[in-house]
Amino acid sequence: MAVSVRDVAARAGVSVGTVSNVLNRPAKVAPETVARVQAAIAELGFVRNAVARQLRAGHSRSIGLVVLDVGNPFFTDLARGAEDRAAADGLAVLLGNSDDDAAREAAHLDLFQEQRVHGVLVSPLGPDALPRLRRLRENGIPAVLVDSPSDDDSFSSVAVDDVAGGHLAVTHLLEQGRRRIALIAGPSHIRQVADRIAGARRAVAEWPGATLEVVTVPALTVLEGRAAGESIRDRPAEQRPDAIFAANDLLAVGALQALVMLGSIDVPGDIALVGYDDIDFASATVVPLTSVRQPSAEIGARAVDLLLGEAADPEGFARQQVVFQPELVVRRSSGGAA
């Protein structure tokens, strides 16, 4: 049950008007009273309802969506899929970008709760987001995980089997005769990255003589991919890998720039390259990029389906874990037959 202003007032031992002043005009209230009210707010988990007057009949007609990186075309396509599906039910999607920052993720979720959205879709940074999502549910706002599985099935989720995706990418490189694989990976606390690394390790373990070097970068961006590519390019030839698997296409595009456009490495002759996500311009890079495809728009649309189902019947809805299988799209960068 949602915590009200009256509950805060009772806990702090003040009037409802005093709580209102603390929330809206704190300069008019004695500092010790402000501190007491703020302590009660924190203890009870109260979130002010900034749109109460327009929502007296229920929730807003909006869905909140929090993604890891709005600059990544994968998440743009996911958001488009969610938006198209939500529009069919007269709902709008409000987009928040966590930018791999737990504090920003929390701020977006708190804002969506304050706005009493119809529900929340979130690509979480990690398990620390789950208590906040449970609090949303307790306040009548369902949540669905997108691009990330729910380990304990406590939330519905829509994701791709990223372990299978990592295995698929590296197995393809091994089948092309490559044995020294470098994996350009982002932060391992991101579940998708960790799973892709696990799949790559599994593939290498199945091939005698194959090795895997994990090159960790701080962000899943073109610039970080370029920096990793430059470090590989500048090694002596005998110390370079003969293949690179990048944890997403942005990293792969950056690595390709460093190797081919800013260097003299032949792709795929000297180094084969595979990315992940199959974003729209993967086929239009200077060397068309082999990539592991995720059904990004379908992930967003399916997540909205689950969210609307839970919102319509919070107690009776059977939470679901939807897992799509990835698909390898072969182009020239890996040396395979397109």
Rank of each mutant, 00 (worst) to 15 (best):
V158H: 07
S264T: 15
A219F: 01
S150I: 05
V217W: 00
A159F: 01
L212N: 06
S157Y: 05
G199M: 14
P149Y: 03
D234E: 15
A255H: 11
R226Y: 12
I181E: 11
A159M: 00
A258M: 09
R179C: 01
V214L: 09
P241I: 07
I190A: 14
A252S: 13
E213Y: 00
A200R: 05
E206G: 13
V160H: 07
P208T: 07
G165K: 02
P241S: 04
T221Q: 05
R240W: 04
S188N: 03
G177R: 14
L183T: 03
A243T: 05
S156C: 02
D234T: 09
G177C: 11
V214K: 11
V260D: 14
V160Q: 07
A203G: 10
E213G: 10
D152Y: 04
Q176P: 00
L262N: 08
V214E: 12
R191N: 05
E224M: 02
V204H: 04
Q239G: 14
T216W: 00
A203H: 07
V204G: 04
G186T: 05
T171F: 01
G186V: 08
A203L: 05
V253F: 13
S154D: 11
V170T: 09
R196D: 04
A205H: 05
A228C: 11
V193S: 10
R201W: 00
P218D: 09
A243S: 04
I197C: 08
I181K: 08
P218R: 12
A169H: 05
A219K: 05
I184Y: 14
P241K: 09
Q192F: 11
R179Q: 10
P241W: 13
D162A: 01
G209H: 07
L212E: 06
S188T: 13
Q192G: 10
A164S: 10
A198L: 13
R226S: 15
D242K: 08
V222K: 08
A182K: 03
Q257E: 11
S148W: 15
V170A: 09
S148G: 00
D153E: 12
R196I: 03
A219N: 08
D161F: 12
T221R: 12
Q192E: 08
I265F: 07
A159D: 12
R201S: 04
L250W: 11
S154A: 14
A169Q: 02
A159T: 15
V204M: 03
A159K: 00
